[in-house]
C-alpha cells in the first residue's frame, strides 16, 4: 500500500515548520514518529497535501527529569527513550509504568510521546497518563507558545484544539505534591493490539495521606476520560479499602465503553473497576511497607 502523493518538507527549525504549515493550510500534517500517521496515509484515511517532517529540528529530543519533580518531554522523544530512562521509575512512576506497554518494541523506537498526545486516539496510552498526572502540552504557533492542559486538548476522536499551524513542542507533567506514586495498567489481547481498556492512576502521597490524585481512562469512550470524581474521593485521606472502593466505583461509573470484538461494555467497565482497585491497592501496600 502506498500513501497518496504529498509534498515533503523537512524544516530545520520550529519557526520554519510553522511557516510551512501556515502557508500550506489545513491539509498539511506534521510527521514525527509516523507510527500512526503513516499507516493512516497508507490506508488513505489521511491524505495530507504537505507533510512536514520535524525529525531534523534540533532541540526537541530532551527528556528532562527536572529537580523540582516535573517531567518535560520534547516532541522527538520516542516511547523507547522513556522505556529505557533509568531515572524515570522513581521520578515519574506512572509514565515509567506505561512506557513499555505502548504498542510493540519496534514501534516504540519510532513513535513519539508528544505525537501520541496530538494524535488524540481515544485508545492512546499517553493521553490517559497525562490526564492522570494533570499534565499539559506546550504548543507553538505563529503567535508564540501556549500551554494546553491535556484534559482540554482533545475534542473528540483524533481531534484536538490545536490549530493547523501549531506544533506540539513539549509535554510537561507538573511537579508532584508529595511522593509520586501510582501506575498504569492496560488490557490488550496481544502486544501491539489496541487496548481493550486501560487505566492510569497517579497519587501524590504525603505521609499516609493522598495530597493529589488523578485517574485517566483510555479505550472506554470516544475520548480519553478524566475521572475527576474518582480522584476527588481519594484526596485528603489515607488509602483505605472504603476510599479505594469509592474511587473504583466512580471511575467505572463514568466509563462509556462500547461492546465490540474485544469485549462487552459491561466487561470493559468491570476491567476499569478492577484496574483502579489494583493500582490503588499496590500504592496502599507499598505505603504499609514504608511505615
Amino acid at each position: 500500500m502506498y500513501p497518496g502523493r504529498f509534498q515533503y518538507e523537512a524544516p530545520k527549525t520550529i519557526a520554519e515548520a510553522i511557516a510551512i504549515l501556515t502557508e500550506a493550510g489545513p491539509d498539511a500534517k506534521l510527521l514525527a514518529g509516523g507510527q500512526s500517521l503513516i499507516p493512516m496515509m497508507k490506508l488513505r484515511f489521511a491524505g495530507p497535501t504537505v507533510l512536514v517532517d520535524i525529525n531534523s529540528i534540533e532541540g526537541l529530543d530532551h527528556l528532562d527529569l527536572a529537580a523540582d519533580g516535573s517531567t518535560r518531554v520534547g516532541a522527538l522523544v520516542r516511547h523507547a527513550d522513556l522505556e529505557r530512562s533509568s531515572g524515570l521509575g522513581a521520578h515519574n512512576p506512572v509514565m515509567a509504568a506505561a512506557a513499555p506497554l505502548v504498542a510493540d518494541p519496534s514501534v516504540r523506537n519510532r513513535g513519539t510521546f508528544v505525537g501520541s498526545l496530538c494524535h488524540a486516539d481515544p485508545q492512546g496510552d499517553w493521553a490517559a497518563v497525562m490526564v492522570a498526572l494533570g499534565g499539559s502540552l506546550i504548543a507553538q504557533g505563529p503567535d508564540g507558545r501556549r500551554t494546553i492542559p491535556v484534559d482540554d486538548l482533545v475534542t473528540g476522536p483524533f481531534q484536538t484544539v490545536l490549530a493547523h499551524n501549531e506544533l506540539g513542542v513539549e509535554a510537561v507533567a507538573p511537579a508532584p505534591k508529595g511522593t509520586p506514586m501510582g501506575g498504569y495498567l492496560k488490557l490488550e489481547r496481544r502486544v501491539g493490539d489496541f487496548a481493550t481498556a486501560s487505566v492510569a492512576v497517579s497519587v501524590d502521597m504525603q505521609g499516609g495521606t493522598v495530597a493529589r490524585a488523578g485517574i485517566g481512562l483510555a479505550a472506554v469512550a470516544s475520548r480519553t476520560l478524566n475521572a475527576t470524581e474518582a480522584a476527588d474521593a481519594l484526596v485528603g485521606g489515607p488509602l483505605t479499602p472504603d476510599r479505594i472502593q469509592a474511587a473504583a466505583d466512580a471511575a467505572a461509573g463514568i466509563a462509556e465503553p462500547k461492546s465490540d470484538h474485544r469485549g462487552s461494555a459491561e466487561y470493559k467497565r468491570h476491567i476499569v473497576h478492577t484496574f483502579v482497585t489494583r493500582l490503588l491497592n499496590r500504592v496502599a501496600s507499598s505505603m504499609e511497607k514504608v511505615a
Partner: peptide, 21 residues
C-alpha cells in the same frame, strides 16, 4: 514485523518509515 530492519541499530518496521526519512 516481517519488514523489520535496523535503523541506526534499532529495529523499525520499514513498511512504516518513509524512504526519505
Amino acid at each position: 514485523g516481517a519488514c523489520t530492519v535496523l535503523m541506526d541499530g534499532e529495529p523499525v518496521k520499514s513498511c512504516t518509515v518513509l524512504a526519505v526519512q
